[in-house]
Design a protein around this nucleic acid. Structure first.
Lengths: 171, 171
DNA sequence: TAAATAGAATAATGTACTTTTATCAATATG
DNA sequence: CATATTGATAAAAGTACATTATTCTATTTA
């Protein structure tokens, strides 16, 4: 038997889907479908960032004290086209907090100014050093007394790959 | 006039699309469409990682010397559900290479063992310290001589939010 | 009158289909 | 014969549609 007629307010409510908001169909490469669905589902790798203050005795991370949400890649990489990573070898920059096996975030679109920490190709090796560029002298300075500065003669060309923006150190 | 009947080999060739591979339509939240398209287009924030060796005099990053491709988020975040970030305040862990305004990657699914660097909530503040947990004593040890260790009395409960896995330091 | 239930309403989802884009080959043209 | 033109072909991209899922309400039943 019919139970019906018109009725206002019926129907599936908005925001009851997986994402609690309207969706759109877009096309992505087959090989990335899984990764992208995971990316979408986890909200774009946005994770909570906490600052200093919390309630006394607060036992675990809560939304209440979140300073904001942050996506690491977004935060560290301004232009994917000009950014790359370098794995550190050696101790020559230890006093700048750069340890072996650290990962450096490098941007080659930044100007290599005096005082910046840069990645340079010297003698077939990639090296991290602080750039000295003053009084018509160019030098690569280690931050470790046991290493010697590298002088770049005026006729030599120094191949600087980019400027280091961040150091990622695993504990 | 007609210019021809059947002909083999005609048609748009495979791999001439934006992604040079077949695509699939998937549904994603409207608010993330732009981000996801950028993500898909840049290959999932996979950027080159370089190791130590390059050809002498190599002027710029080239594919030839790539150690591999790396996605920062993927590399640093094993489980988005249990990972969060903390912004560092203060100098108490300076000797562990943890500076003010550094960002810590913290995983709360890891066991807080003796010797690990942890995030704890003490007196309404989030604090980073090395965990001492031996001989029935629990202490939070700074790595800076100007700071004092924090003793946790047996009857107190120490609220550990998670174990620090990585330090991100801007230069 | 309270609980159960069938059906209506509508959002969410996935996919089939249409439209667009790109390339090739057959023919025409100079 | 070299070059330009046009239609055939097929991949790629975007979108509309059919399907599925969910919730609400009017009616029935106890």
């Amino acid at each position: 038997m019919p139970r019906g007629g018109k009725r206002a307010g019926a129907g599936r409510p908005k925001g009851t889907g997986k994402y609690a908001e309207p969706t759109k169909a877009i096309r992505v490469p087959v090989s990335m479908v899984d990764k992208i669905l995971e990316y979408a589902h986890s909200g774009g790798f946005q994770l909570p960032l906490y600052g200093g203050k919390v309630a006394a005795g607060c036992p675990a991370p809560t939304d209440d004290y979140i300073e904001g949400m942050m996506d690491l890649s977004e935060h560290l990489i301004h232009d994917p086209a000009t950014t790359f990573f370098v794995r550190v070898t050696g101790y020559s920059m230890i006093n700048a907090g750069i340890h072996p096996d650290d990962i450096l975030v490098v941007d080659r679109s930044l100007e290599a100014r005096h005082g910046k920490i840069v990645i340079a190709a010297v003698d077939g090796e990639l090296t991290v050093k602080r750039l000295y560029k003053k009084d018509n002298r160019v030098r690569l300075l280690p931050e470790n007394d046991e290493f010697d500065p590298i002088d770049i003669a005026p006729e030599e060309t120094l191949h600087i790959w980019g400027v280091v923006t961040n150091v990622i150190h695993a504990l």
